[in-house]
Computed example of a mutant assay.
Amino acid sequence: MNKNGPVIIIEDDLDDQLLLEVVFQKLGYPNKVVYFLDGQQALDYLNKTEEVPFLILSDINMPKLDGFALRDKIHMDAQLKVKCIPYLFFSTAVSQQMVIDAYSLSVQGFFVKQVSMDELEKSITVIMEYWKRCVAPNNF
């Protein structure tokens, strides 16, 4: 895990992207934030970039490659898996079955998108601070 790497946000709703951009700017984390509209774009980026992202915040319901399929591809790819990139779902869609399916794919967190800016800021702060303090096998 690269704590200084970019935060990858996979979100097909441009309004949600804008809200997240405002929150990240307000919170002032030094990490670059990179947005993708679908899982396939994110997967292509992950396979081509030399950068090791800090974490991935992924919506579930997206065109081309949904969040579950993307997580499965990353989890099964030895070169991507060894980068130890935390993969978290950040979605308005939530059900018990979705959460079970997410954790069966070794997702490191499932967060429901908050409606208010204040709650969205709190969620992003909790996520960022937790992973900034976490240690991964590739930190040594």
Rank of each mutant, 00 (worst) to 15 (best):
N139F: 06
V135S: 12
Q41S: 03
Q25L: 08
N47G: 14
T125I: 11
Y103S: 04
P63A: 06
Y130P: 00
C134K: 04
C84Q: 04
E129P: 01
D66P: 03
L37K: 09
V23R: 05
Q114C: 06
L43D: 07
Y29D: 03
L57Y: 07
L70P: 06
L80F: 04
M98G: 00
E11L: 09
A69P: 00
L80K: 11
L20M: 10
F110Q: 13
K132D: 12
Y29E: 02
I56M: 10
D44W: 01
P63Y: 08
N47M: 12
Y130R: 14
D16L: 04
K64A: 07
V135F: 01
T125F: 14
D16G: 03
K64C: 02
D16E: 04
L88K: 11
D101R: 06
Q108F: 02
K83T: 10
K3E: 02
P86K: 15
L20C: 09
E119M: 11
P6M: 03
L80T: 12
H75G: 02
K73R: 14
K132Y: 08
K83Q: 13
F54H: 04
L37N: 15
M76H: 14
R133G: 10
Q108P: 00
S116W: 09
S104F: 01
F68I: 06
P30R: 14
Y45C: 12
K32D: 11
K113S: 14
A78W: 06
K32E: 14
A93E: 12
F110H: 08
Q114H: 15
Q40M: 11
K113E: 14
Q108C: 03
Q108G: 11
V112K: 09
L18A: 06
L14E: 15
Y29K: 07
V112A: 04
A93Q: 05
N61Y: 09
F36H: 11
E21Q: 09
F89C: 08
